[in-house]
Design a binder for these strands. Structure first.
Lengths: 324, 324
DNA sequence: ATTCAACATGTAACCGGATACACATTAAGG
DNA sequence: CCTTAATGTGTATCCGGTTACATGTTGAAT
């Protein structure tokens, strides 16, 4: 049996389609008993309005494009989950776009989103091209100075917390592994770290990594101990790198945290299962997604927006990989 | 500037909308120079057909509903990624549905998918209610006997491999932690495990868990060593549980793998970063998603389908948590 | 009694494509 | 030269909603 249409309902209730539409959308005037009749017809036919037809006329659907650099990076599923939970509660759906840091795929997705009349885009990816995009747009995590609407963590504070935690363990040689230099988040993080470290007489070195892939983190971890055998403390750019470094340290027979301190960033769920438990800086990843979705939908629905840029606090999760 | 429509293109090229449509879709007859004129107009206007309008007429969109029990479980992002990669290559998009094992949300999503004229549904979730669903449907992973189109791993073989690997380490007391009894995958796994273990004189015990949440895995791991202090080998239902058990074992001061063997299941990416490296049974998770999407789209597009039920092989990934 | 606003409902156009059908035109075959 | 099939193009309708506008009540205020 094919799905009932608004005309079927209208016929059954003995009214016009306009009236049925008014009942569905609670718009305009509808008499008491007419409303009742229509509701009954809807009930009996198990009618539910077709979203595609609605989208066509409104030129706006209930779909939201969700751009993620890489869902197989464990940071993003939580973000996606938060975003999706909020969207569902407001009657929206996410169209998934896994961009893999590829600008081609990125703009391909933006195009597809447009063809589908998405109501807006929530992006955890950023490229200069994104500013051309006309739809309501909220950036989470990968913020730049140009982004108008965004939700992100206080990375300066995060950097400070990580540095302080490491300093507490009286380190002799600190290595800071930083994320891509081009990303503002990384810059803030480094600024936070240096604001603390530079006041101390302790030697530290900063190196950069451009990949958050596990395989690359493993290679990096290997290389670190070759290039800097004397280090006893590492501030990692995320938990993946931290775990890789931790593992490599253990393989080299180092006592954790006595001979090697490691602190990660993000607090992805798996850190709880590492041995020893990784110390890390907690980001409210789920909330990042949730608030991003909220901000976007508020924007879409023209609500009052109290804050275009939302910065979330981070906190230290003291595990067993830093000295107390 | 608003997007160009097919009528704009028709006007610019001096032809009718039907002709433009024929050019776009390569259908019917179009003259050589007419085709050229139309293509040029499309180019100049940067026209790209509106997917919503097309969906409305066809009663079928280029969207595919993707149902996942929980994306924050690290098994599923890889699956989603495989599915999405294939979909994109065939011109389809995934609408994300995170179901959290809740039948309410599940059917809510199916409804929304329908309202959006999805072309089909790819589901890593299964409930009896799903058989009512009319659209093309492919189930990945969570297969039952009733599922018509499906892609899944050879869990019987997986169970055998895990049991054999554990046996090689000359265990004295084996504990098998199994997934939910209701899920056929778990049953097959157990059958495979028992087909090996039952031929040996070694004592083993099977217990069940119903959750794959990290917190629950931690509780379970704690309980295991209280209830069965004598065990020296554990076959876990997935890597999360395995890692939790491994960690708890280490906390209790057990030598790995001398005093405690652990084998997981799935081979989620993070296992590579565990210390010691977890031994596990590898599932081709990405391929599961990829092939699921392929099967579904073949179904949608009425292609020849050589195999309605695709079973993928698994293999042992020998880490450092089993004795050789 | 007249006027006007609030209420109630229907008609028809519109959103942007796809396509059935009608109507040429051309070329091939008898 | 005529018939017929293949080719090329346009007109109008449909998909399933939303809404501008027209029309018709009803009741309160003047």
């Amino acid at each position: 049996m094919t799905l009932a249409t608004i005309r079927d309902v209208a016929k059954k209730a003995g009214v016009s389609v306009a009236t049925v539409s008014r009942v569905i959308n609670d718009s305009g005037y509808v008499g008491q008993d007419t409303r009742k009749k229509v509701k009954q017809a809807i009930e009996e036919l198990n009618y539910s309005p077709n979203e595609v037809a609605r989208s066509l006329y409104q030129r706006k659907s209930k779909l939201i494009g969700l751009l993620i650099p890489d869902i197989s990076n464990p940071f993003f599923p939580l973000l996606a989950r938060g975003a999706e939970d909020h969207m569902r509660s407001r009657g929206y759906q996410a169209i998934l776009g896994n961009v893999q840091e590829d600008p081609e795929i990125f703009s391909e997705y933006l195009k597809t989103f447009n063809k589908n009349n998405v109501a807006g885009v929530l992006s955890a990816v950023n490229t200069p091209a994104i500013s051309d995009y006309a739809e309501p747009l909220v950036i989470v995590d990968r913020v730049t100075d140009k982004t108008e609407y965004s939700v992100f963590s206080n990375d300066y504070q995060g950097g400070m917390l990580a540095a302080k935690a490491i300093l507490q363990g009286r380190p002799k040689n600190i290595l800071v592994v930083a994320g891509p230099q081009a990303i503002k988040r990384s810059q803030d993080r480094i600024a936070g770290i240096e604001s603390i470290l530079s006041r101390q007489p302790i030697a530290y070195k900063i190196i950069h990594t451009n990949s958050f892939q596990i395989a690359d983190a493993e290679k990096m971890a290997f290389k670190i101990f070759e290039d800097y055998p004397e280090i006893d403390s590492v501030i990692a750019p995320n938990d993946i790198h931290a775990l890789a470094i931790l593992k490599q340290g253990l393989l080299l027979g180092k006592k954790i945290p006595q001979e090697l301190q490691v602190i990660g960033y993000d607090d992805i769920p798996m850190t709880r299962l590492s041995s020893p438990t990784l110390s890390t800086i907690h980001q409210s990843t789920y909330r990042l997604g949730w608030l991003g979705a909220k901000l976007l939908i508020d924007l879409i629905e023209d609500r009052n927006i109290s804050d275009k840029k939302i910065m979330l606090p981070v906190r230290l999760v003291a595990g067993d990989t830093i000295r107390k």
